[in-house]
Design a protein around this nucleic acid. Structure first.
Lengths: 216, 216
DNA sequence: GTTAGCATGTAAGGAGTTACATGATTTT
DNA sequence: AAAATCATGTAACTCCTTACATGCTAAC
C-alpha cells in the first residue's frame, strides 16, 4: 500500500530537480516522461510523494497563492528536493547497471539524460541496444521455428513486433552516433539527435557489445 | 492471489482452442501472443489455469507420454477446452467493445483474429485506430504547448513516441484496407497484409469514426 | 555424476489501478 | 446554478513478479 516505486520515484525526483511543483502539476508532466503516455493515477502519486517526504528526499511547503493570479486555486503543497534528495538523485542518475536499460526504466532514464554525464549516457544507450539485439535474436529464432504452424494474423503480429524492435535499434544507433560526436553527413539541421535515414529494414544488427548479468 | 486475469485468460483459452497443451508449452506460446515478448512467469500461469479449471472452462488430463519420444518428460497435465469453455471463448471473441482495442488487450485480440468474424475484426481495428488518433492529438497538443521549456532529450523522447504512434496508425490503415478487400496496387506478393508503402510521415490522420464511452 | 532443461506448483509481495471522499475555484 | 477543472488524499483490489519448493529426464 505504500507508494515505493522504482519507475515513479526517480521520475518524480528528476522533475522536482528541474523545478519545484505541486502534485497535480507533477502528474501531468509525469505522463510525458513515463513513456507510452499512460495516465498516472493520484492513487499512485500521492502515496509516493508521502513516502519520499518521510525519507527526507523531498519536502512540501503549503503555498497559498495570491487569489488574483492566473493559477490561483486552493492552498497547494509545493514539493522540492532536499539536499539529501539531490545527492540521492545524482547517485541514481550516475548508475548504469542493467536495470537502467530495461523496458520499464529506460524511458525515464533517457528523459533525464540532460542531468546525466556523457559516459553514463553512452553506457545506457549501448546496454539498451544490446538488450534489444538479444530480443531480436529470440524473436527471429521462434519466428523461424514456428512459421509454418502459424496463421496469417499471428504471423503479422510477430512480423510487426519484429519491425518495431528493429526500428528501435536503428533509433538507438542514431543516438549513439550522436553521443560519440560522429554526427554523420548532416551538418546543421534541426538540432535534435538525427536518427538514421536509411529506408532499408533488413540490415544485420551488430553483435552484442556489452555484458549482461551483473544485477546492480 | 487468484489467477483471474483479463489479458491472460483469453490468451490461454484461444491457444487451447487451437490445440490442447500442457502448462510449460503454453507459457512459451503465450509469450509470442501477449505482445512485447515479455516472459510470463509460472506464478501467473498455473494459478490462472487452476481457476479456469474451477470454472469448468478447461479440463486437465494427466498424460504420461511414452519415454522414447522426443518430448518425453515427467507426467504432464494436458489442458483442453470444455464445451462451456468453447462457448465462452466464442462470446469473448465476438465482443468488440472499447476494451478490445485498449493497449493491454489489442494484441491478444488481434492474435486470434483467425477465430474472429470479419465484422468484429473491422470494428476492433477501426476502434484501435480511433484510439491511437486521439492519443496522437493529445501528444501533439502537449508537444506544442511545452516545446520551449523542454531540453533536447525529453524532446527527442516525445518526438520518437509520436513517430511510433504515427507508424502504428499507418500499420492499422494497411490492415483495415486489407479487411475491406480493397487490396491496393500490389497484386501477389508475400501473402501477408500489406502495410502502406508511403514514406511520408506527416499526412493528416482521419477524424474519429467510432464512438467511445460505452463500457461494455 | 552433475549440469541444464522440462514440468508443476505455492506464498509473499510489489507496483500500480479504480473507486471513493472532500472541497475550492472557474467557466458556462 | 450547474458543470468542469483544480487539488489532495485513502482503501480496497488486481495483476503480475520473485523466490521458493519439488522432482524428473537428457546431455555432457
Amino acid at each position: 500500500m505504500r507508494g515505493r516505486s522504482d519507475v515513479l520515484e526517480p521520475a518524480i525526483l528528476g522533475l522536482l530537480h528541474e523545478s519545484p511543483m505541486h502534485g497535480y502539476e507533477l502528474r501531468k508532466r509525469l505522463n510525458l516522461v513515463l513513456g507510452s503516455f499512460r495516465a498516472l493515477s493520484y492513487g499512485s502519486l500521492y502515496p509516493c510523494l508521502k513516502s519520499l517526504v518521510e525519507r527526507h528526499w523531498i519536502e512540501g511547503t503549503e503555498s497559498v497563492v495570491a487569489p488574483h493570479t492566473v493559477a490561483s486555486k486552493r492552498a497547494r503543497i509545493v514539493y522540492q528536493l532536499t539536499a539529501d534528495g539531490k545527492e540521492h538523485l545524482q547517485q541514481v542518475l550516475a548508475s548504469s547497471g542493467p536495470a537502467a536499460w530495461e523496458d520499464e526504466n529506460f524511458d525515464v532514464r533517457f528523459a533525464f539524460f540532460g542531468q546525466t554525464d556523457a559516459e553514463t549516457r553512452l553506457r545506457i544507450l549501448e546496454g539498451r541496444r544490446t538488450r534489444l539485439t538479444e530480443r531480436l535474436e529470440t524473436i527471429r529464432q521462434s519466428f523461424a521455428r514456428t512459421r509454418e504452424r502459424m496463421d496469417e494474423y499471428t504471423l503479422e503480429l510477430q512480423r510487426h513486433g519484429l519491425e518495431q524492435v528493429e526500428r528501435e535499434v536503428r533509433w538507438l544507433d542514431g543516438l549513439i552516433d550522436n553521443e560519440r560526436g560522429l554526427r554523420r553527413t548532416r551538418p546543421a539541421g534541426t538540432g535534435r539527435p538525427t536518427a538514421a535515414d536509411t529506408p532499408a529494414v533488413d540490415d544485420d544488427v551488430a553483435p552484442a557489445r556489452t555484458t549482461e548479468k551483473e544485477r546492480g
